[in-house]
């Protein structure tokens, strides 16, 4: 029994169908519990008032925006090295989810920034980095859409993902250098003085778990859809070749 068995599309579909309900339900539970707890059962922050509560959407979506790209990077590497089609399709399936996560992070950031910093948008390094990440996502998705041959598309987008990752990290440093920001430092690291207090911390953890589970569920589901789409295409080609 090895992990690579799931590279077989049939095996992947069978297993993902079995585990998907669990992910949907637990993602829903975590999100409902985390958000309700966060929105209604935590005190207002003494400086930020109730605006602080947008943290329960902002931080998890921002984390997932980055994690989705990392997952795409790993999937791309697996495709380039081991040529498992499911891996390439999983990367393709994750990209639009990453786009939406990045958008949520940007929009909630703007909504939070308005009362806190007095502006909807500031060229703060972290906000700017997310905007750049958003552009990378758009390019990646557009390249997938533009190429007809699925293997060619998988190869080209994988290389783009690799090269893009290097440039995304470079951009992050460049942007930091370019403008020292307004953002608070690390919110969640365990040893920092400025760490947020437990009252906010636990519901936030639940929300993050909810976003992670939701991401996994969405990617599994979308990968299944991509596999079925490929299957339909293959069957059509076979019909045409036989005719």
């Amino acid at each position: 029994m090895s992990l690579w068995e799931y590279a077989n599309p049939k095996k992947f579909l069978a297993t993902s169908e079995r585990v998907l309900p669990f992910f949907w339900v637990s993602a829903g539970l975590c999100l409902v519990v985390g958000l309700v707890w966060g929105f209604f059962f935590t005190p207002d922050d003494f400086r930020q008032g109730s605006t602080v509560k947008i943290i329960y959407l902002h931080v998890p979506s921002a984390m997932m925006a980055i994690n989705a790209w990392v997952m795409m990077l790993l999937a791309s590497l697996i495709w380039l090295i081991r040529r498992h089609h499911v891996s390439a399709l999983a990367a393709r399936a994750a990209a639009p989810v990453g786009v939406v996560m990045t958008l949520i992070a940007l929009v909630t950031g703007a909504i939070w920034g308005q009362p806190m910093w007095g502006t909807w948008w500031a060229w703060d390094p972290r906000l700017t980095s997310f905007l750049i990440l958003f552009l990378f996502y758009l390019g990646y998705v557009a390249l997938w859409e533009a190429i007809e041959n699925p293997d060619t598309a998988a190869d080209l987008t994988s290389v783009l993902c690799l090269v893009g990752s290097v440039f995304a990290v470079l951009s992050r440093y460049a942007v930091n250098f370019w403008n020292q920001g307004l953002h608070q430092g690390a919110t969640l690291s365990l040893d920092k003085e400025e760490n947020i207090s437990d009252v906010f911390y636990f519901p936030l953890l639940v929300c993050i778990a909810g976003f992670v589970l939701l991401f996994i569920a969405l990617v599994l589901y979308r990968t299944g859809t991509e596999i079925r789409a490929r299957r339909i295409k293959a069957l059509r080609l076979r019909e045409r070749a036989a005719a």
């Binding site: 750049i132 552009l135 990378f136 758009l138 390019g139 557009a142 390249l143 783009l160 090269v163 893009g164 440039f167 470079l170 951009s171 440093y173 460049a174 942007v175 250098f177 370019w178």
Partner: peptide, 13 residues
């Protein structure tokens, strides 16, 4: 669309 994001670090520095 693909090249412009890659130009960011060069442009900034």
């Amino acid at each position: 669309l693909l090249v412009l994001p890659l130009y960011v670090p060069t442009l900034i520095f």
